[in-house]
């Protein structure tokens, strides 16, 4: 008997896994083309007849964008654009900062012996294991107390008062991303032979040049995957952002949550579809880049 023969059970369980994973996404995308405003049942695609949006109560009868009606609505929505802008700004800044801090932390934890090293190592896991809501409340309390003290002692009033906003969201995102970057880079550093750095110094490179020309290129895959992790964590963080945002710093997850509380139109689905496709293509591009890199070696 062929030991590699595919057992029907394996096949069907694999299929089930795929269904569970991807069916919600397929449904979500399908509903972004829904003619019904209520978004409960699928009433067919939005037809495109006239150059004006025609609606019949709950149904969209026709739209110049046709099936892409909700995407057009989405594009007109200034709040979405602002939320997307905020999300990206927060994600990019917090990824850059946390990648640098996380990499430095990983390098120093690997290289140096110091008294509080076991504590530092352990403290990396705290933000990962404690519930996000606890951390969110913690950061909120910290900021409001801190800002209260600063505002009253400096006598700040009106617009110059320190308050929750993009800044606080970015700082809190950096705070929860750093441990992830550190752990990923640490994994990469395991088995990193220090003789590479010694060789570079031996050949005349000072510490900074050694880092730039040898260490960083060698650990770059680790740093990049850490950064990617930080980026995705920041992109879809809801809980901590919920506690730390303020006026003008609404992110996409917060915005979607807000929409859901009012009325669920297929516009939410359209937004999610764009989001999924964006993330998906980023992942594909990174995969392709990594494969190309692997082939070169």
């Amino acid at each position: 008997m062929n030991p590699h023969r595919r057992h029907p059970f394996i096949f069907s369980s694999a299929m089930l896994v795929y269904v569970f994973l991807y069916a919600p996404i397929v449904v979500l995308i399908l509903f972004s083309f829904n003619a019904s405003r209520a978004n409960v049942t699928f009433e067919g695609f939005v037809p495109s007849f006239s150059d004006k949006v025609v609606m019949d109560g709950s149904l969209v009868l026709s739209s110049p964008c046709g099936p892409f009606h909700w995407f057009c609505e989405l594009a007109k929505d200034k709040d979405v654009a602002e939320a997307a802008g905020n999300t990206l700004t927060i994600a990019i800044i917090s990824t850059l900062v946390s990648s640098v801090i996380g990499t430095m932390a990983a390098l120093s934890l690997q290289r140096y012996e110091f008294k509080l090293k076991p504590f530092s190592q352990l403290s990396l896991y705290i933000p990962i294991v404690i519930p996000e809501i606890v951390m969110g409340i913690g950061i909120l309390t910290l900021f409001s107390q801190l800002f209260g003290v600063i505002n009253s002692s400096l006598g700040l009033t009106g617009d110059s008062r320190l308050s929750m906003g993009l800044g606080t969201v970015i700082v809190s995102h950096i705070a929860f991303s750093v441990p992830f970057v550190t752990l990923v880079v640490q994994a990469r550093l395991q088995g990193f032979d220090k003789s590479y750095e010694e060789a570079a110094m031996d050949l005349g490179a000072n510490e900074w040049t050694t880092f730039r020309r040898v260490t960083l290129p060698m650990i770059l895959p680790g740093v990049l995957s850490g950064a990617l992790l930080a980026f995705t964590l920041s992109l879809d963080d809801f809980v901590i952002t919920f506690f730390t945002n303020g006026p003008g710093s609404t992110t996409l997850p917060i915005y979607v949550y807000g929409l859901l509380r009012r009325i669920i139109t297929p516009q939410v689905n359209a937004l999610s579809t764009v989001w999924i496709l964006t993330v998906f293509s980023v992942v594909l591009i990174l995969q392709w880049l990594q494969n190309r890199e692997a082939k070169q070696h």
């Binding site: 032979d193 003789s195 590479y196 010694e198 060789a199 570079a200 110094m201 031996d202 050949l203 005349g204 490179a205 000072n206 040898v214 290129p217 060698m218 070696h297």
Partner: peptide, 20 residues
Amino acid sequence: TPPFQRKVNTVFQSYALFQH
């Protein structure tokens, strides 16, 4: 004196050739 200021060079046991 740090290694990069010494007029000596080393051949390492692991060679330590830069893989990239």
